Simulated assay, not measured.
Amino acid sequence: MKLSLRAGEKVYVNGAVLRVDRKVSIEFMNDVSFLLESHVIQADQTTTPLRQLYFAAQIMLINPAVKEEANRTFKRMLASLLATFENRQMLKELKLIDEMVCNERVFDALKSIRLLYALEAQILFGPVEQTISSQTDRAVRPEANP
């Protein structure tokens, strides 16, 4: 696995945080758990259920010292999401994510969770297209304004 990092960028590797001072490429010659800074979210960014799940999985990957505790939190959150969501695609994907975590493929689980953000937004807030078309209607047809 080869990574290219920009000056000042961080990468989390097996619980260590590395910051590079110049543009550099790193090649991992064996299996390693890593997460790029651009994929790390902070606690204050966990504004939706999936982002909270992502944060718990992220902790498993970047802080091996608390991996078991983070895993228990992840499992509790996942069970809650499976009981709450009704969307079949979401439920199917969450079950696959659970399987990934059970098989120690946390990095893959994080990628899959990120891909579900748009579906989550649609479930929680409705289709984006309706919001955009409503605003467009108001701009084009003044009589549509309340």
Results as ranks from 00 to 15, higher is better:
residue 1 M to K: 10
residue 2 K to S: 07
residue 6 R to S: 07
residue 6 R to K: 14
residue 6 R to H: 11
residue 7 A to P: 01
residue 10 K to G: 03
residue 11 V to I: 13
residue 11 V to C: 06
residue 14 N to Y: 09
residue 14 N to E: 15
residue 15 G to M: 09
residue 15 G to K: 12
residue 16 A to F: 15
residue 16 A to P: 02
residue 16 A to W: 13
residue 16 A to C: 08
residue 17 V to H: 03
residue 18 L to C: 09
residue 19 R to Y: 12
residue 19 R to P: 04
residue 19 R to M: 14
residue 19 R to E: 15
residue 21 D to L: 07
residue 25 S to N: 09
residue 26 I to K: 01
residue 26 I to V: 11
residue 26 I to E: 01
residue 27 E to A: 09
residue 29 M to N: 07
residue 29 M to V: 10
residue 31 D to L: 05
residue 31 D to G: 06
residue 31 D to V: 04
residue 32 V to M: 02
residue 33 S to T: 05
residue 34 F to N: 08
residue 36 L to M: 05
residue 40 V to Q: 01
residue 41 I to E: 05
residue 41 I to C: 08
residue 45 Q to C: 01
residue 45 Q to N: 07
residue 46 T to K: 01
residue 46 T to I: 01
residue 47 T to S: 05
residue 48 T to K: 01
residue 50 L to Q: 07
residue 50 L to V: 06
residue 51 R to D: 03
residue 52 Q to V: 07
residue 52 Q to Y: 08
residue 53 L to P: 06
residue 54 Y to C: 04
residue 55 F to I: 00
residue 55 F to P: 05
residue 56 A to D: 02
residue 56 A to I: 00
residue 57 A to R: 00
residue 57 A to F: 07
residue 57 A to W: 05
residue 58 Q to P: 11
residue 59 I to F: 09
residue 60 M to W: 00
residue 60 M to K: 06
residue 62 I to Q: 02
residue 62 I to M: 05
residue 63 N to C: 14
residue 63 N to G: 12
residue 64 P to M: 03
residue 65 A to I: 14
residue 67 K to E: 15
residue 67 K to D: 10
residue 68 E to C: 00
residue 70 A to M: 11
residue 71 N to W: 11
residue 71 N to E: 10
residue 72 R to W: 03
residue 74 F to V: 03
residue 74 F to N: 06
residue 75 K to Q: 10
residue 76 R to K: 15
residue 77 M to I: 10
residue 78 L to D: 04
residue 78 L to C: 04
residue 79 A to L: 09
residue 79 A to R: 13
residue 80 S to Q: 08
residue 81 L to D: 04
residue 82 L to F: 02
residue 83 A to R: 11
residue 83 A to I: 06
residue 85 F to K: 04
residue 88 R to T: 13
residue 90 M to C: 14
residue 91 L to D: 07
residue 92 K to L: 13
residue 92 K to N: 14
residue 94 L to H: 10
residue 94 L to F: 12
residue 95 K to D: 13
residue 95 K to A: 15
residue 96 L to D: 15
residue 97 I to V: 08
residue 98 D to P: 00
residue 98 D to E: 13
residue 99 E to D: 15
residue 100 M to R: 10
residue 100 M to A: 07
residue 100 M to L: 15
residue 102 C to R: 06
residue 102 C to W: 04
residue 106 V to S: 02
residue 107 F to M: 14
residue 107 F to H: 13
residue 109 A to M: 06
residue 109 A to F: 04
residue 110 L to D: 03
residue 110 L to Y: 04
residue 110 L to R: 03
residue 111 K to F: 09
residue 111 K to P: 01
residue 112 S to H: 13
residue 112 S to R: 14
residue 113 I to T: 02
residue 115 L to P: 02
residue 116 L to T: 10
residue 116 L to P: 08
residue 117 Y to D: 04
residue 117 Y to F: 15
residue 118 A to H: 01
residue 119 L to Q: 07
residue 123 I to S: 00
residue 125 F to W: 09
residue 126 G to I: 09
residue 128 V to A: 11
residue 128 V to Y: 03
residue 128 V to T: 02
residue 129 E to K: 12
residue 130 Q to V: 03
residue 131 T to Q: 13
residue 131 T to W: 06
residue 133 S to I: 08
residue 133 S to T: 10
residue 136 T to V: 15
residue 136 T to P: 01
residue 138 R to L: 15
residue 139 A to N: 14
residue 141 R to Q: 12
residue 142 P to R: 11
residue 143 E to G: 03
residue 143 E to Y: 12
residue 146 P to V: 08
